[in-house]
Design a protein around this nucleic acid. Structure first.
Lengths: 191, 191
DNA sequence: GAGATCCTAGGACGGCCGTCCTAGTCGCTG
DNA sequence: CAGCGACTAGGACGGCCGTCCTAGGATCTC
Protein backbone atom coordinates (compact mmCIF):
# COMPACT_ATOMS: atom_id res chain seq x y z
CA UNK A 1 0.00 0.00 0.00
CA UNK A 2 2.76 2.40 0.92
CA UNK A 3 4.75 1.38 -2.15
CA UNK A 4 1.75 1.60 -4.45
CA UNK A 5 0.90 5.06 -3.18
CA UNK A 6 4.45 6.08 -3.96
CA UNK A 7 4.31 4.61 -7.45
CA UNK A 8 0.98 6.22 -8.10
CA UNK A 9 2.29 9.55 -6.87
CA UNK A 10 5.39 9.17 -8.99
CA UNK A 11 3.26 8.54 -12.06
CA UNK A 12 1.10 11.58 -11.37
CA UNK A 13 4.08 13.84 -10.79
CA UNK A 14 5.91 12.62 -13.88
CA UNK A 15 2.77 13.00 -15.99
CA UNK A 16 2.19 16.45 -14.52
CA UNK A 17 5.62 17.59 -15.66
CA UNK A 18 5.45 15.87 -19.06
CA UNK A 19 1.98 17.21 -19.80
CA UNK A 20 3.33 20.66 -19.05
CA UNK A 21 6.50 20.31 -21.11
CA UNK A 22 5.18 18.34 -24.09
CA UNK A 23 1.43 18.70 -23.93
CA UNK A 24 -1.15 16.11 -22.94
CA UNK A 25 -1.70 14.44 -26.29
CA UNK A 26 1.96 14.34 -27.23
CA UNK A 27 2.90 12.58 -23.98
CA UNK A 28 2.74 8.80 -24.36
CA UNK A 29 2.36 6.07 -21.76
CA UNK A 30 5.83 4.93 -22.73
CA UNK A 31 7.32 8.34 -21.95
CA UNK A 32 5.73 8.46 -18.51
CA UNK A 33 6.77 4.88 -17.75
CA UNK A 34 10.36 5.60 -18.75
CA UNK A 35 10.45 8.73 -16.60
CA UNK A 36 9.18 6.88 -13.55
CA UNK A 37 11.23 3.79 -14.32
CA UNK A 38 8.43 1.23 -14.34
CA UNK A 39 7.16 -1.11 -17.01
CA UNK A 40 4.45 0.06 -19.36
CA UNK A 41 2.20 -2.84 -18.40
CA UNK A 42 2.34 -2.14 -14.70
CA UNK A 43 0.74 1.16 -15.49
CA UNK A 44 -2.62 -0.34 -16.09
CA UNK A 45 -2.87 -1.38 -12.45
CA UNK A 46 -2.85 2.23 -11.29
CA UNK A 47 -4.67 3.95 -14.16
CA UNK A 48 -6.87 2.22 -16.69
CA UNK A 49 -6.87 5.02 -19.28
CA UNK A 50 -4.87 8.08 -20.17
CA UNK A 51 -7.86 10.23 -19.28
CA UNK A 52 -7.74 8.86 -15.74
CA UNK A 53 -4.14 10.05 -15.47
CA UNK A 54 -5.17 13.46 -16.73
CA UNK A 55 -7.92 13.66 -14.12
CA UNK A 56 -5.44 12.69 -11.41
CA UNK A 57 -2.94 15.28 -12.67
CA UNK A 58 -5.57 18.01 -12.59
CA UNK A 59 -6.61 17.00 -9.07
CA UNK A 60 -2.97 17.06 -8.07
CA UNK A 61 -2.54 20.55 -9.50
CA UNK A 62 -5.66 21.79 -7.73
CA UNK A 63 -4.41 20.43 -4.44
CA UNK A 64 -0.94 21.88 -4.97
CA UNK A 65 -2.40 25.25 -5.89
CA UNK A 66 -4.67 25.26 -2.84
CA UNK A 67 -1.67 24.57 -0.64
CA UNK A 68 0.30 27.37 -2.25
CA UNK A 69 -2.50 29.90 -1.78
CA UNK A 70 -2.94 28.82 1.84
CA UNK A 71 0.79 29.24 2.32
CA UNK A 72 0.66 32.75 0.90
CA UNK A 73 -2.26 33.64 3.13
CA UNK A 74 -0.35 32.36 6.15
CA UNK A 75 2.81 34.26 5.32
CA UNK A 76 1.34 37.69 4.59
CA UNK A 77 -1.73 39.30 6.06
CA UNK A 78 -1.89 42.22 3.63
CA UNK A 79 -4.20 41.39 0.67
CA UNK A 80 -2.29 43.75 -1.63
CA UNK A 81 0.93 41.94 -0.79
CA UNK A 82 -0.76 38.61 -1.54
CA UNK A 83 -1.91 39.86 -4.93
CA UNK A 84 1.58 41.12 -5.62
CA UNK A 85 2.85 37.64 -4.96
CA UNK A 86 0.55 36.29 -7.64
CA UNK A 87 1.57 38.99 -10.09
CA UNK A 88 5.21 38.06 -9.61
CA UNK A 89 4.68 34.39 -10.50
CA UNK A 90 5.64 35.28 -14.07
CA UNK A 91 9.03 36.33 -12.67
CA UNK A 92 9.39 33.54 -10.12
CA UNK A 93 8.65 30.85 -12.69
CA UNK A 94 10.16 32.89 -15.50
CA UNK A 95 12.41 30.17 -16.91
CA UNK A 96 9.66 27.54 -17.16
CA UNK A 97 7.18 30.02 -18.58
CA UNK A 98 9.57 31.18 -21.29
CA UNK A 99 10.08 27.56 -22.31
CA UNK A 100 6.63 26.02 -21.84
CA UNK A 101 4.16 28.83 -21.15
CA UNK A 102 1.66 28.88 -18.29
CA UNK A 103 0.72 25.35 -17.13
CA UNK A 104 -2.91 26.31 -16.56
CA UNK A 105 -3.42 28.36 -19.71
CA UNK A 106 -1.76 25.92 -22.11
CA UNK A 107 -3.54 22.87 -20.68
CA UNK A 108 -6.92 24.60 -20.82
CA UNK A 109 -6.29 25.66 -24.41
CA UNK A 110 -5.23 22.16 -25.46
CA UNK A 111 -8.21 20.47 -23.83
CA UNK A 112 -10.51 23.00 -25.52
CA UNK A 113 -9.15 22.04 -28.93
CA UNK A 114 -9.42 18.32 -28.12
CA UNK A 115 -12.96 18.86 -26.84
CA UNK A 116 -11.83 16.82 -23.89
CA UNK A 117 -14.37 15.90 -21.20
CA UNK A 118 -11.95 17.02 -18.47
CA UNK A 119 -11.84 20.56 -19.75
CA UNK A 120 -14.15 21.92 -17.01
CA UNK A 121 -11.82 20.50 -14.36
CA UNK A 122 -8.88 22.31 -15.97
CA UNK A 123 -10.90 25.52 -16.04
CA UNK A 124 -11.57 24.97 -12.33
CA UNK A 125 -7.86 25.60 -11.82
CA UNK A 126 -8.40 29.06 -13.28
CA UNK A 127 -11.44 29.52 -11.10
CA UNK A 128 -9.36 28.70 -8.04
CA UNK A 129 -7.04 31.63 -8.75
CA UNK A 130 -9.94 33.83 -9.81
CA UNK A 131 -11.88 33.33 -6.58
CA UNK A 132 -8.79 33.69 -4.43
CA UNK A 133 -7.81 36.95 -6.14
CA UNK A 134 -11.37 38.23 -5.91
CA UNK A 135 -11.29 37.45 -2.19
CA UNK A 136 -8.18 39.59 -1.78
CA UNK A 137 -9.73 42.50 -3.66
CA UNK A 138 -12.84 42.15 -1.54
CA UNK A 139 -10.66 42.33 1.55
CA UNK A 140 -9.29 45.57 0.16
CA UNK A 141 -12.81 46.98 0.39
CA UNK A 142 -14.16 46.44 -3.12
CA UNK A 143 -17.61 45.16 -3.90
CA UNK A 144 -17.76 41.50 -4.99
CA UNK A 145 -18.58 42.29 -8.64
CA UNK A 146 -15.74 44.79 -8.89
CA UNK A 147 -13.39 42.45 -7.08
CA UNK A 148 -14.16 39.67 -9.56
CA UNK A 149 -13.55 41.99 -12.50
CA UNK A 150 -10.22 42.95 -10.98
CA UNK A 151 -9.34 39.30 -10.42
CA UNK A 152 -10.03 38.54 -14.09
CA UNK A 153 -7.94 41.55 -15.06
CA UNK A 154 -4.97 40.23 -13.10
CA UNK A 155 -5.46 36.75 -14.55
CA UNK A 156 -5.57 38.17 -18.07
CA UNK A 157 -2.36 40.04 -17.36
CA UNK A 158 -0.56 36.89 -16.30
CA UNK A 159 -1.86 34.89 -19.27
CA UNK A 160 -0.90 37.57 -21.77
CA UNK A 161 2.55 38.02 -20.28
CA UNK A 162 3.12 34.25 -20.13
CA UNK A 163 2.11 33.74 -23.77
CA UNK A 164 4.40 36.49 -25.04
CA UNK A 165 7.24 35.50 -22.73
CA UNK A 166 6.97 32.01 -24.23
CA UNK A 167 6.93 33.37 -27.78
CA UNK A 168 9.68 35.99 -27.52
CA UNK A 169 11.65 34.93 -24.43
CA UNK A 170 11.97 38.60 -23.50
CA UNK A 171 12.64 38.97 -19.79
CA UNK A 172 12.69 42.77 -19.87
CA UNK A 173 9.16 42.81 -21.22
CA UNK A 174 7.97 40.63 -18.34
CA UNK A 175 9.62 42.85 -15.76
CA UNK A 176 8.14 45.97 -17.35
CA UNK A 177 4.63 44.54 -17.29
CA UNK A 178 5.00 43.36 -13.71
CA UNK A 179 6.06 46.86 -12.69
CA UNK A 180 3.13 48.35 -14.53
CA UNK A 181 0.56 46.11 -12.89
CA UNK A 182 2.07 46.63 -9.47
CA UNK A 183 1.77 50.37 -10.02
CA UNK A 184 -1.86 49.83 -10.92
CA UNK A 185 -2.30 47.80 -7.77
CA UNK A 186 -0.66 50.47 -5.61
CA UNK A 187 -2.48 53.28 -7.39
CA UNK A 188 -6.07 53.75 -8.42
CA UNK A 189 -6.99 50.18 -9.44
CA UNK A 190 -8.90 51.68 -12.36
CA UNK A 191 -10.62 49.16 -14.55
CA UNK B 1 -1.87 23.58 -63.27
CA UNK B 2 -4.89 25.72 -62.49
CA UNK B 3 -6.62 22.72 -60.96
CA UNK B 4 -3.59 21.72 -58.93
CA UNK B 5 -3.20 25.22 -57.57
CA UNK B 6 -6.79 25.08 -56.45
CA UNK B 7 -6.31 21.71 -54.77
CA UNK B 8 -3.18 22.89 -53.04
CA UNK B 9 -4.95 26.02 -51.84
CA UNK B 10 -7.89 23.95 -50.65
CA UNK B 11 -5.54 21.73 -48.65
CA UNK B 12 -3.83 24.73 -47.07
CA UNK B 13 -7.10 26.42 -46.15
CA UNK B 14 -8.61 23.23 -44.72
CA UNK B 15 -5.44 22.53 -42.73
CA UNK B 16 -5.39 26.13 -41.55
CA UNK B 17 -8.87 25.79 -40.10
CA UNK B 18 -8.32 22.31 -38.65
CA UNK B 19 -5.00 23.24 -37.06
CA UNK B 20 -6.84 26.12 -35.42
CA UNK B 21 -9.83 24.11 -34.24
CA UNK B 22 -8.13 20.85 -33.25
CA UNK B 23 -4.46 21.69 -32.95
CA UNK B 24 -1.62 20.75 -35.28
CA UNK B 25 -0.73 17.36 -33.84
CA UNK B 26 -4.30 16.21 -33.37
CA UNK B 27 -5.15 16.94 -37.00
CA UNK B 28 -4.51 13.91 -39.21
CA UNK B 29 -3.91 13.63 -42.95
CA UNK B 30 -7.16 11.72 -43.12
CA UNK B 31 -9.10 14.58 -41.53
CA UNK B 32 -7.70 17.13 -43.96
CA UNK B 33 -8.31 14.85 -46.94
CA UNK B 34 -11.92 14.28 -45.88
CA UNK B 35 -12.49 18.01 -45.45
CA UNK B 36 -11.14 18.81 -48.91
CA UNK B 37 -12.77 15.75 -50.45
CA UNK B 38 -9.67 14.18 -51.99
CA UNK B 39 -8.00 10.83 -51.45
CA UNK B 40 -5.34 10.48 -48.80
CA UNK B 41 -2.82 9.23 -51.34
CA UNK B 42 -3.19 12.19 -53.65
CA UNK B 43 -1.98 14.33 -50.82
CA UNK B 44 1.57 13.21 -51.20
CA UNK B 45 1.77 14.85 -54.61
CA UNK B 46 1.25 18.32 -53.11
CA UNK B 47 2.96 17.91 -49.72
CA UNK B 48 5.49 15.25 -48.87
CA UNK B 49 5.25 15.63 -45.09
CA UNK B 50 2.93 17.07 -42.48
CA UNK B 51 5.58 19.62 -41.60
CA UNK B 52 5.45 20.93 -45.16
CA UNK B 53 1.73 21.53 -44.74
CA UNK B 54 2.38 23.37 -41.50
CA UNK B 55 4.97 25.58 -43.19
CA UNK B 56 2.50 26.33 -45.98
CA UNK B 57 -0.23 27.11 -43.45
CA UNK B 58 2.03 29.52 -41.57
CA UNK B 59 3.01 31.21 -44.85
CA UNK B 60 -0.65 31.47 -45.71
CA UNK B 61 -1.44 33.06 -42.37
CA UNK B 62 1.40 35.52 -42.73
CA UNK B 63 0.18 36.53 -46.16
CA UNK B 64 -3.42 36.84 -44.96
CA UNK B 65 -2.35 38.92 -41.98
CA UNK B 66 -0.25 41.21 -44.15
CA UNK B 67 -3.25 41.76 -46.40
CA UNK B 68 -5.47 42.54 -43.43
CA UNK B 69 -3.03 45.08 -41.98
CA UNK B 70 -2.64 46.72 -45.39
CA UNK B 71 -6.42 46.87 -45.64
CA UNK B 72 -6.66 48.56 -42.24
CA UNK B 73 -3.99 51.05 -43.19
CA UNK B 74 -5.85 51.85 -46.39
CA UNK B 75 -9.19 52.34 -44.66
CA UNK B 76 -8.12 54.58 -41.79
CA UNK B 77 -5.33 57.11 -41.69
CA UNK B 78 -5.43 57.70 -37.94
CA UNK B 79 -2.89 55.44 -36.15
CA UNK B 80 -4.97 55.41 -32.96
CA UNK B 81 -7.97 54.23 -34.94
CA UNK B 82 -5.85 51.47 -36.49
CA UNK B 83 -4.69 50.31 -33.07
CA UNK B 84 -8.29 50.36 -31.87
CA UNK B 85 -9.13 48.06 -34.73
CA UNK B 86 -6.56 45.58 -33.51
CA UNK B 87 -7.80 45.83 -29.93
CA UNK B 88 -11.31 45.01 -31.08
CA UNK B 89 -10.29 41.77 -32.81
CA UNK B 90 -11.18 39.94 -29.60
CA UNK B 91 -14.72 41.22 -30.11
CA UNK B 92 -14.88 40.81 -33.89
CA UNK B 93 -13.69 37.20 -33.68
CA UNK B 94 -15.30 36.67 -30.30
CA UNK B 95 -17.12 33.45 -31.15
CA UNK B 96 -14.05 31.69 -32.58
CA UNK B 97 -11.83 32.89 -29.75
CA UNK B 98 -14.22 31.66 -27.08
CA UNK B 99 -14.24 28.25 -28.73
CA UNK B 100 -10.64 27.84 -29.92
CA UNK B 101 -8.58 30.69 -28.47
CA UNK B 102 -6.25 32.91 -30.47
CA UNK B 103 -4.92 31.20 -33.63
CA UNK B 104 -1.47 32.74 -33.24
CA UNK B 105 -1.09 32.23 -29.52
CA UNK B 106 -2.30 28.64 -29.40
CA UNK B 107 -0.22 27.56 -32.40
CA UNK B 108 2.92 29.15 -30.99
CA UNK B 109 2.33 27.50 -27.63
CA UNK B 110 1.77 24.08 -29.21
CA UNK B 111 4.86 24.28 -31.40
CA UNK B 112 6.91 25.31 -28.36
CA UNK B 113 5.83 22.19 -26.49
CA UNK B 114 6.51 20.00 -29.54
CA UNK B 115 9.90 21.68 -29.98
CA UNK B 116 8.89 21.96 -33.60
CA UNK B 117 11.39 23.37 -36.11
CA UNK B 118 8.73 25.71 -37.53
CA UNK B 119 8.25 27.49 -34.22
CA UNK B 120 10.24 30.59 -35.28
CA UNK B 121 7.98 30.98 -38.30
CA UNK B 122 4.93 30.89 -36.04
CA UNK B 123 6.52 33.48 -33.78
CA UNK B 124 7.08 35.60 -36.89
CA UNK B 125 3.29 35.95 -37.02
CA UNK B 126 3.47 37.61 -33.64
CA UNK B 127 6.33 39.77 -34.82
CA UNK B 128 4.22 40.91 -37.74
CA UNK B 129 1.59 42.33 -35.40
CA UNK B 130 4.25 43.62 -33.01
CA UNK B 131 6.07 45.64 -35.67
CA UNK B 132 2.87 46.91 -37.19
CA UNK B 133 1.56 48.10 -33.81
CA UNK B 134 4.93 49.65 -32.96
CA UNK B 135 4.76 51.49 -36.27
CA UNK B 136 1.40 52.97 -35.32
CA UNK B 137 2.65 54.09 -31.92
CA UNK B 138 5.68 55.61 -33.59
CA UNK B 139 3.35 57.49 -35.90
CA UNK B 140 1.64 58.83 -32.76
CA UNK B 141 4.94 60.45 -31.83
CA UNK B 142 6.51 57.90 -29.50
CA UNK B 143 10.12 56.86 -29.59
CA UNK B 144 10.79 53.47 -31.18
CA UNK B 145 11.69 51.74 -27.89
CA UNK B 146 8.56 53.08 -26.18
CA UNK B 147 6.45 52.25 -29.20
CA UNK B 148 7.67 48.65 -29.14
CA UNK B 149 6.93 48.35 -25.43
CA UNK B 150 3.43 49.66 -26.11
CA UNK B 151 3.00 47.21 -28.96
CA UNK B 152 3.95 44.31 -26.68
CA UNK B 153 1.54 45.63 -24.07
CA UNK B 154 -1.33 45.59 -26.55
CA UNK B 155 -0.33 42.12 -27.74
CA UNK B 156 -0.23 40.86 -24.14
CA UNK B 157 -3.68 42.31 -23.60
CA UNK B 158 -5.14 40.44 -26.56
CA UNK B 159 -3.46 37.17 -25.59
CA UNK B 160 -4.62 37.40 -22.00
CA UNK B 161 -8.16 38.28 -22.99
CA UNK B 162 -8.27 35.50 -25.61
CA UNK B 163 -7.03 32.85 -23.17
CA UNK B 164 -9.58 33.76 -20.50
CA UNK B 165 -12.38 34.19 -23.03
CA UNK B 166 -11.62 30.67 -24.20
CA UNK B 167 -11.58 29.34 -20.64
CA UNK B 168 -14.65 31.11 -19.22
CA UNK B 169 -16.61 32.11 -22.33
CA UNK B 170 -17.44 35.40 -20.63
CA UNK B 171 -18.31 38.04 -23.21
CA UNK B 172 -18.84 40.80 -20.63
CA UNK B 173 -15.28 40.38 -19.43
CA UNK B 174 -13.96 40.80 -22.97
CA UNK B 175 -16.00 43.97 -23.51
CA UNK B 176 -14.83 45.39 -20.19
CA UNK B 177 -11.18 44.81 -21.01
CA UNK B 178 -11.56 46.26 -24.49
CA UNK B 179 -13.12 49.40 -23.02
CA UNK B 180 -10.32 49.65 -20.49
CA UNK B 181 -7.55 49.39 -23.08
CA UNK B 182 -9.29 51.85 -25.40
CA UNK B 183 -9.45 54.29 -22.50
CA UNK B 184 -5.72 53.74 -21.98
CA UNK B 185 -5.16 54.39 -25.67
CA UNK B 186 -7.24 57.59 -25.61
CA UNK B 187 -5.70 58.73 -22.33
CA UNK B 188 -2.14 58.83 -21.09
CA UNK B 189 -0.75 55.63 -22.60
CA UNK B 190 1.07 55.05 -19.34
CA UNK B 191 3.19 51.95 -19.26
C1' DG C 1 -4.17 10.86 -82.61
C1' DA C 2 0.27 9.72 -80.17
C1' DG C 3 2.92 10.96 -76.38
C1' DA C 4 4.47 13.61 -72.53
C1' DT C 5 2.96 15.91 -68.29
C1' DC C 6 0.09 16.93 -64.60
C1' DC C 7 -2.78 15.17 -61.35
C1' DT C 8 -5.43 11.63 -58.78
C1' DA C 9 -7.12 7.22 -56.32
C1' DG C 10 -6.26 3.44 -53.59
C1' DG C 11 -3.86 0.84 -51.00
C1' DA C 12 0.57 -1.08 -48.74
C1' DC C 13 4.31 -0.39 -45.25
C1' DG C 14 6.39 -0.11 -40.65
C1' DG C 15 5.76 2.11 -36.33
C1' DC C 16 3.85 3.81 -32.30
C1' DC C 17 -0.35 4.51 -29.85
C1' DG C 18 -3.70 3.28 -25.89
C1' DT C 19 -5.52 -0.74 -23.98
C1' DC C 20 -5.67 -5.14 -22.01
C1' DC C 21 -4.25 -10.00 -20.32
C1' DT C 22 -1.51 -13.10 -17.71
C1' DA C 23 1.92 -15.12 -15.10
C1' DG C 24 4.56 -14.22 -11.34
C1' DT C 25 6.79 -11.82 -7.12
C1' DC C 26 6.61 -9.73 -2.73
C1' DG C 27 4.94 -9.03 1.93
C1' DC C 28 1.55 -9.43 5.30
C1' DT C 29 -1.80 -12.23 8.11
C1' DG C 30 -3.64 -16.27 10.39
C1' DC D 1 4.16 -22.02 6.48
C1' DA D 2 0.04 -21.66 3.72
C1' DG D 3 -2.80 -18.39 1.62
C1' DC D 4 -4.20 -14.07 0.14
C1' DG D 5 -3.99 -9.48 -1.52
C1' DA D 6 -1.09 -5.85 -3.32
C1' DC D 7 1.86 -4.97 -6.85
C1' DT D 8 4.86 -5.62 -11.09
C1' DA D 9 6.91 -7.11 -15.76
C1' DG D 10 6.39 -8.25 -20.31
C1' DG D 11 4.18 -8.77 -24.08
C1' DA D 12 -0.04 -9.24 -27.28
C1' DC D 13 -3.99 -6.90 -29.61
C1' DG D 14 -6.30 -3.90 -32.98
C1' DG D 15 -6.14 0.68 -34.73
C1' DC D 16 -4.62 4.84 -36.54
C1' DC D 17 -0.66 7.47 -37.77
C1' DG D 18 2.60 9.58 -41.41
C1' DT D 19 4.82 8.10 -45.42
C1' DC D 20 5.41 6.10 -49.79
C1' DC D 21 4.52 3.42 -54.31
C1' DT D 22 2.09 2.50 -58.44
C1' DA D 23 -1.22 2.35 -61.93
C1' DG D 24 -4.39 5.02 -64.40
C1' DG D 25 -7.10 9.21 -65.89
C1' DA D 26 -7.17 13.96 -67.58
C1' DT D 27 -5.13 17.60 -70.31
C1' DC D 28 -2.19 19.74 -73.45
C1' DT D 29 1.36 19.74 -77.35
C1' DC D 30 2.99 18.58 -81.90
Amino acid sequence: MAVSATTRAQIVEAADRLFYEQGFEHTSFTAIAETVGISRGNFYYHFRTKDEILAAVIDFRIETTRDMLRQWAAETADPAQRIRRFIRIVLTNGADIREFGCPVGTLTAELAKLRHPSRPEAVALFTLFRDWLAGQFTALGHHPATADAMALHVLAFSQGVATLANAFGDDDFVRREVDRLEAWLAGGLTL
